[in-house]
């Protein structure tokens, strides 16, 4: 039975889709069988970030409405044969996602994949609550910025109350993925530090993805960053996050803390 992960955040633009694609690819690069499901009905983008936008025939809504079989809607990645995508619908609206339908699709996916990654839409409405509903594990994507931290706190509250696990009295496993972290600005005191965010949200840290041009480059190319440039800083951070997801205990390196002489010299405010 596969594990169901929801990648969520509340706030938009913090890197849910980028992270879903990168984590999914990184897991597949480790030999795992992975499907990434786009729950953002009406505003799908996972297909674009994963470079499959021209191969979408059927989508999640088609499957739920019985217009297509699950196997017809799944798109296999061209680079990684154990990575699949289930796109969201671009033309229907989110009311087409039914609770029963989503439950059936997730149950079917769990049977044939090791990991089912649900890429949640922003907000706290239907799409977002259905994306988290059947999750075993939640990854809360947060930027070191006040509005993102506040929304993450709200989402953590929903994960602890509105999911099947929570309703059965079980504990939802939650991890923080801190994205767009800029060590220079944090060092200067103009960005919340890792410890600040951890103290406020008090959930364990899965990884820190540094702010990087490589992320934009990868999405321009339609390739998860772990595939586009596996040795780039964000890719290494995603690979480490995946090792932790698979149960390894691995210390989290805070970007910028091992800076050399020049980094220190140019990184700090000269006062």
């Amino acid at each position: 039975m596969g594990k169901v992960i929801v990648v969520t955040s509340g706030k938009g633009g913090v890197g849910k889709t980028t992270s879903s694609a990168a984590l999914g690819a990184a897991l597949a690069q480790n030999g795992e069988k992975v499907v990434v499901v786009d729950f953002d009905v009406g505003l799908r983008n996972l297909d674009l970030v994963m470079g499959a936008e021209r191969r979408v025939v059927y989508d999640l809504v088609n499957v739920i409405q019985g217009e297509a079989k699950l196997t017809q809607a799944l798109i296999r990645d061209k680079r990684l044969e154990s990575l699949y995508l289930l796109p969201a619908s671009q033309t229907r609206d989110k009311d087409n996602l039914t609770s029963d339908g989503v439950e059936k699709v997730i149950a079917a996916l769990k049977k044939s994949f090791d990991w089912v990654i649900c890429d949640s839409p922003a907000g706290i409405e239907r799409g977002a609550t259905l994306a988290m509903r059947h999750a075993d594990v939640a990854i809360v994507v947060t930027n070191p910025e006040v509005s993102s931290v506040r929304d993450s706190d709200r989402i953590i509250g929903l994960l602890d109350s509105k999911t099947v696990k929570a309703e059965n009295g079980e504990r939802m496993e939650k991890h923080l993925l801190l994205t767009r972290y800029d060590p220079v600005r944090a060092e200067r005191g103009d960005m919340l530090k890792v410890d600040d965010v951890l103290e406020i949200l008090s959930i364990p840290l899965l990884g820190i993805i540094p702010e990087s041009m490589d992320v934009l480059r990868a999405s321009n190319l339609g390739s998860p960053v772990t595939l586009a440039d596996g040795r780039s800083a964000p890719a290494v951070a995603y690979f480490d996050a995946v090792r932790r997801l698979r149960g390894e205990t691995l210390p989290v390196a805070v970007p910028g803390e091992k800076r050399g002489f020049f980094g220190k010299f140019f990184g700090r405010k000269a006062a």
């Binding site: 910025e145 931290v149 200067r188 530090k193 406020i200």
Partner: peptide, 23 residues
């Protein structure tokens, strides 16, 4: 530029107070 004070501590404090109430 040089006299500008750090803004992260303010962000941290504001969040702590706000979230305590929202929770």
């Amino acid at each position: 530029f040089f006299s500008r004070s750090q803004s992260a501590p303010a962000a941290r404090e504001r969040l702590q107070v706000l979230l305590a109430h929202e929770r």
